[in-house]
Each structure stands twice: as C-alpha cells, then as structure tokens.
Design a protein around this nucleic acid. Structure first.
Lengths: 348, 348
DNA sequence: ACACGCGATGTCGACGTTGTCATAAAAATA
DNA sequence: TATTTTTATGACAACGTCGACATCGCGTGT
C-alpha cells in the first residue's frame, strides 16, 4: 500500500512535509505543496485512518446502536438524518443492531470501544424508555427517540407526540367535528400515552364531554408480535348509531385498516367520515385515497440534531443532560372535511 | 487508554504473551493464560482495532454503499441480512448512502479506502443496472439487487423477479382466473419488465389470449418523483364491462390503491375481485383486510448471501463473476378466491 | 558585520499491535 | 548422559501517521 513515505520519496521531501500538506498546515511553500499534491495524485495515495487514529486517539467516528431501527420502515429517516450530518461534517458512522438482545448489545458496546468511537447515538424504533447496557463504559452518548430509564441522565432528543396529537385534535375541532373516535396505539409505546392524553385534554379544554369521544385500543402485546384489533374496532366504531364524524388513529399503518373498514361499510372518506393519521409514513399516507392528513414525526430532524448534539458533547460541552423535544408538523391533505358540509340528518 | 502493555505489566508477562492470549494462539501455559485473562478483566482492556489493522493490514470491515436503501422501507432487510452475517462472523460494517449523487459516491469510495476496507457491498433500493464510480479503485465488490451496467463483470446477487411473477400468475390460473389485470411498476425498474414478461408468458403458455389480459401502466417517471396513476387505472379497469376476476400489481404499495378503488366501487375482496401484490412489504400486506397474497422478495437472503459471497471473494476465491439469482417465495393469505366460487352471471 | 526573528523543512519517537526471531526450559530421543 | 525436539516466553522491529523539537536559510534592524 502506498503510504506517506512513498509520497515523500516521490516528491523529494520529508514525510513530515507531506503530512503538513495533507492536513493543510501552514509553513509550506506553494511550490512544494504543489509538488507533493502531484505526487499524491500520481501515486493514488489515500491517508490511512487507522494510523491517524492510533497516533491522535481521535477516530472521528460515531456509532449508532439501534434496536430494530434499520430494519423497520418507520424510523429509517433518523438514520438518514445522522448520516447526512456525518457526511457534511466528515465523520464516519458505524452502525449496529441489537435485535433487542441485550447480550448482543453488550458486544456492540465492546466493538465500538475497540474502534475507539468518539460517541454513540442510541436510537430506538419506537419512542420508549430504555436502559442502555453500557456497563462501565464511558462513551459520550445521546439518546434519540428514547430516554434513559434509570438514574443516570443522558441527553436525549424526542419527538413531541403531545403537541402533534394536540394539533391534530385542534384541527378536527376547528373543522367542526364534535364526535371524535380515537384508536389507540400499542400502550407499551411511550408516544401512545402522550398522544392519547393530548387528545383527551384538548377535546376537554374545548368543551367536549367524555361521551363525545370513542376511545378504543387498536393494538397490544410485545413489539413485533402485537395483536391487532384495528379493523374490528374501527368497524364497530363506525357502526354505532351515533358514530363519530372523525377518527384519529395511532399511526398511519393502522389507518389503512380504518379506511378499509369505512369503505366496507359503504362510508365515503371524507364525506361521511374524516380520518387523520399519525407519523406521515409516506408509503401509506400518499398511497391512501384520499391522501391522508397526518402529523409528521420529525425523524429526520431527530437524527440531524442528535448527531449535532453528540458532537458538541464529544467536543467537551459538558452541557446539560437535557431532554430536547422536536415538534411534529401537521401535513394537511384531503382526508378531512369540515363538518358543516356533512348532511346533518346523517349522523343521527 | 489501557493497552496491551498495561495488561502485560499487571500480569507480569511480556506484551507478546498477552497478544498470544488475546488471539488464542498456542504455546501459553494454562496458568499464564488465566493470569493474563484476569488482568484483562480487571483493567477492562479492549483491543484497539486500529493498531491491529495497521500491523496486519486486515480491517475485517466491509463497506455498504447504497443509493437510498437505508432510507427506504423496502430493502432495509438487505441491510439487516448483511448485518446479521457480519455479526455472526465478527466483521464490522461501514455504511454510507450516495443519495444518488455520483460526487458523493466517489467520496465514499475514498472514505472506504482510507479505512482500508476489505470489501464492498454495492446495494440498490430497486433492482437496476448501475455503473459504480469505483474509479481506479480495486476493492473486491459484490453487487446486491443490481448488476453492473458495463464491461467489467462484478459478481452480483439479485432476486428472481421472473420466477416470482410466474408463481403468482400460475397461482391465479390454478384457481380458475381467466381474465387477469396487471398494473405495471415503473418501467425504469429492472424488475418491472421481468415481472411483466413472466406474467404474459405464463398466461400465454396456459392458453390465455392477449385480450384476456388487461395490462396498464401504474407509475412512471424518475425514482422519487414518479407519477402515480394506480388509483385511476385500477378504477377504470374494474369498471370494464368484462372486468378481470383478479388483479396483479407491481408491488404491495400500489395494492393499497387497488383495494381502495375496488371498495369504492362496492366490490368485495376477494369475493368480487381477487388481488395479489408483490414484495411482501408487511406493513402493507398485513394491514390490508383481507390480508394480501403476495410474492416475498428475498431481501434478507440477498444481504446474507451477498455478504457470504463477498467474504469468499475477499478470501481469494477468485470465483466466477457469477450472477446469482435468489427465488421469491409466494406468501398465501386471503386476498384470492377460486373463480368457481364467483357467481358466473356476475362477470358478464 | 552581527544577532534576531521567522518561515520552511527535517529528524525522531510514540501510538498499540503483531510478526520474526531468539532464547530458555522441559521433554523426548539417542 | 548428551543431543535433539518441543513448548513457553521474551526482545525488538515495523506498520503509517503526526507531535515535539531541531535545523537551516534569509531578510531586518542595529
């Protein structure tokens, strides 16, 4: 392999001078610099990161630990955000999945250490609390889409599920909906409770009674093997005599089933029922007709800001182990209609 | 940082002996081995990969170059397959996305080289031909889900789109369907043509006339900004007097729209129309009711076998620049009904 | 003419590992 | 017992890079 030394020889300078050129240090004549650069080009020299790391003990590498994230369609955007940041800032990314095995997680931490990673981004597919198996390891860590379960506070970045659900509820309220159904996400997910709380609170603040709200559980059970009641529950909800004029659902994936349930009952969307989702999982939200109004989870930004935050932690900004929250953005499409347009007799 | 030397000191042996223990080399007394292992545990020593690499010029690292793959819900399973393999075989994975920028791609190759990567897995989101910007780089490479456009043959692993579509078509034929609609994938995707060919050929071999087949284009345009005609086309297809008893679609995502189109026309699935998808993108195929019969693309296996193949190439098996093809598996669910059960008058 | 400062370059060692070779002790063989 | 082989261990160099420090030459001010 061609090293700094061969380049030095070819350019007729010392290896140190080559090093200077590579790293853009001062005190090199324009003329030598050019000679060295030519030699580098001619020989196709590429710096050896490993040697650099061994010398300077700075790997310029971040590790990503995920549960299933790279495996799941939802939060891949977190990874994309991280990669874009890394790319723009000359960092390298090492990525590994635990597959929810804590033995595997311990191995990953070891692997990261053996690569002398500068910092770790701990990412989960669903927003939840976790207990990193970092052991006695002391690598700067930022949590994305999750928060540490226990004592030791690590900085974290999470989506604002509450605000997202609040916006969505207001949106429906503003359009005259007064009977609203809600099909709940799997309650073991952190976001589920927050979204439900926001829905209830917002509706109550607006003056709706608990009886104006139909709240049903759509899914439950361990992630990856959950029971799915959505279709049945939606069907039941829409068959009520006094059925809701709008249904809000835990996520966009569940919404597919709500659409189908509604249509199977001969209901038109949005003329007969308005529907809103959550996530803006575009494979679904754009494929549904009418296209789905939903709250976009800021996954990409989570990744971007997480990397940025980790970088500042690594750089020494001891910083607050703050828990930052990133807002969701309401994406308005065509699955909601103002209630004044709904024939009034219809709902009786 | 605790190095091999501190361990050696703690155990009262030479650094070389510690190295022997770490690498499981022979010629170490059981007694010393234990002493060294204890020191390692006590000090929390973790080998430094960079130093190891610099000495032995073997990084035990593979690189993954993708276009959008980590970004897209479809083929993340390829990555999972690779990671699982790497995990099981003690390799590290470095991953980077080109985002379809060839400037970026060149940078990535450089980055990979600077990490002295052993080999590269070139992965694309959709099956297509590509022209790797490897430049004069000579890193062993295996292509997954794509094939080299030009002269230089690199080994590649691809899904068997033809066989998948063939199986699906036969499945419908076997169940008595004789009028079949087909909504095409974006024709710029390599799989699109193969699937269509398989559909046509299989139907023709069975004795169907071209007029028994309704073939329509569902999508076109550049990836990421394609035009989507699926809903309109499906609606039109299902309104024909002599409408198909079954519809096959380019992929599961398109199928959502076909379901909705059918239901909006008051058609029941599968009683009035049978539907099959392609991909087994489970977020969709399981969310649809009835659940979707579809052909599973072997993404996970593509990744697994690709990594395996790359490993053997790296190990020196010059091997044939073979183009291996992995079969799709038909996943039978409930969206298809045998045609004998369809009221015969209905279709006239 | 002389010391001085500064820009440009070089020498050398260190980072953590492992490969090569040497050496010492123990075991096998003559 | 002498000699060879085997097992166990260590000394040392080298991998590619960069930091600390040394050197050299040249223009400046006195």
């Amino acid at each position: 392999m061609v090293s700094i030394i061969s380049v030095a020889k070819a350019a007729g300078v010392s290896n140190k001078t080559v090093s200077r050129v590579i790293n853009g240090e001062p005190y090199v004549t324009e003329e030598t610099r050019e000679r060295v650069e030519k030699a580098i080009r001619d020989l196709g020299y590429i710096p050896n990161m490993a040697a650099r790391l061994i010398r300077s003990s700075r790997s310029n590498t971040f590790g990503i630990i995920t549960d299933y994230v790279s495996t799941t369609p939802y939060s891949v955007d977190i990874v994309r955000g991280i990669q874009d940041w890394a790319n723009a800032n000359g960092k390298t990314i090492l990525m590994a999945n635990t597959g929810a095995s804590s033995k595997r997680e311990a191995e990953i931490w070891k692997m990261f250490q053996s690569h002398r990673i500068d910092g770790v981004l701990y990412v989960t597919m669903y927003r939840r609390t976790v207990d990193p198996e970092a052991g006695d390891v002391r690598i700067p860590t930022v949590m994305i889409n999750c928060r540490p379960q226990t004592q030791e506070l690590l900085p974290s970045i999470e989506p604002d599920d509450y605000q997202g659900a609040q916006d969505l509820t207001r949106y429906l309220l503003d359009r005259g909906h007064r009977k609203i159904g809600y099909i709940r996400l799997n309650p073991i997910l952190l976001g589920a409770q927050l979204r439900l709380d926001a829905f209830r609170k917002t509706a109550a603040d607006f003056g709706l009674a608990e009886t104006d709200l139909s709240v049903r559980l759509g899914m439950e059970g361990p992630v990856g093997a959950e029971k799915n009641y959505v279709f049945a529950v939606a069907t039941e909800m829409l068959q009520q005599k006094d059925r809701p004029t709008a249904i809000m659902s835990g996520n966009d994936e569940m919404t597919i089933q709500i659409y189908i349930a509604a249509m199977a009952l001969g209901l038109r969307i949005p003329e007969d029922v308005s529907i809103v989702g959550f996530d803006d999982f575009r494979t679904v939200s754009l494929a549904l007709k009418p296209e789905l109004t939903t709250a976009a989870l800021p996954y990409y930004d989570l990744g971007l800001e997480g990397a940025e935050l980790l970088n500042s932690v690594v750089a020494g900004n001891k910083a607050r182990p703050s828990s930052r929250v990133v807002p969701c953005k309401l994406v308005e499409r065509t699955s909601v209609q103002s209630v004044s347009l709904i024939p009034s007799g219809r709902n009786a």
